[in-house]
């Protein structure tokens, strides 16, 4: 405790325990206990009603071997590309292209670009379902420009359903990345770019030497938010596709729900939840490690 005593702020006070009591109580009862119970449930086979039987690590084996469960994680990784990789790349390129200008009216654009982040996902899902309808706006546009062959019922198509869901994630994330990176760029001193240009640096060198390093913190934030959103996708799939067609758009969260409440496989569902939680931890820590290392 020497560390705590040395670094902790303020003076020693017993009354602190009273101040933290309500928070700890509610946190313990509704986060720690359920988390421990989830881990415990994951070692049993149980249909939610009758008696449970010990299963050891059988549920975890199922998570990694059953094609449908493993498939859910593969789909989640595909979604990471759409939710995180594309928005971050797009945001970086655009921010770099706009780096030389001091633009007025950014306040307005920021409000609009960030808007997709605050709308309830269920509402987003309903809007995009309408866009993807067989006779919806997307197919209308394709037919209008003569690409009739491309028009299809997007969410019912075995190949295109998952990318269609992914594009919604791209829509949600791109504005966030753009807003973040433009704000980050505005803090980079203009003189740096002028100096680089005098030294004869091309746009590519400029990007690698100035833009990328100065956006390290913003990159970590953008990746954390978007990768977590991708791995935790639930509402969107529940409302747009229910995992279909077939199991083409199932994701881990959806399989957790599906196994626990529709298939009566509580053990499998909780094992999935544990694996998902670990995946989220690893992703968060890894992203922030990389972000911190860059700052040193």
């Amino acid at each position: 405790m020497a560390l705590a005593a040395g670094r902790g702020p303020g003076e020693p006070r017993r009354v602190a325990y009273l101040y933290i009591l309500p928070a700890l109580l509610v946190f313990g009862l509704f986060v720690l206990v359920p988390l421990a119970r989830t881990a415990q449930f994951s070692l049993y086979e149980w249909n939610g009603l009758g008696a449970a039987s010990w299963a050891g690590l059988e549920n975890y084996r199922a998570v990694f071997t059953e094609p449908q469960l493993r498939g859910a994680f593969v789909h989640a990784l595909v979604l990471v590309v759409f939710y995180a990789v594309i928005p971050v790349t797009l945001g970086l390129l655009l921010a770099a292209a706009m780096s030389r200008a001091v633009l007025r009216g950014m306040g307005f654009f920021r409000v609009v670009l960030f808007l997709p982040q605050v709308i309830p996902m269920v509402v987003v899902a309903i809007a995009w379902r309408q866009i993807y309808e067989p006779n919806g706006p997307l197919n209308d546009v394709l037919r209008f420009v003569g690409l009739d062959a491309l028009a299809r019922p997007w969410l019912g198509d075995y190949t295109w359903a998952l990318p269609s869901v992914g594009i919604v994630g791209t829509w949600v994330g791109t504005g966030l990345c753009l807003v973040l990176f433009l704000a980050g760029m505005s803090r980079v001193p203009r003189e740096l770019y002028e100096a680089a240009r005098l030294d004869g640096a091309g746009p590519f060198r400029e990007f690698r030497a100035i833009t990328l390093p100065s956006l390290r913190g913003e990159l970590a934030v953008a990746l954390t938010l978007t990768v977590i959103a991708a791995l935790k996708t639930f509402d969107l799939v529940y409302v747009m596709t229910s995992g279909g067609p077939g199991t083409e758009t199932t994701v881990p969260s959806y399989q957790v729900y599906n196994n626990a409440f529709l298939l009566g496989r509580v053990g499998t569902a909780t094992a999935l939840a544990v694996v998902l939680t670990l995946l989220l931890f690893v992703a968060t820590v890894a992203i922030n490690r990389v972000g911190e290392r860059g700052q040193r």
Binding site: P34, R37, P252, S253, V266, A273, T277
Partner: peptide
């Protein structure tokens, strides 16, 4: 650490309890 725990990891066990 609790901030990072997703609702998925709580809500099933919590429901049955």
């Amino acid at each position: 650490l609790g901030i990072m725990v997703p609702a998925e990891a709580l809500v099933i066990a919590l429901y049955f309890d």
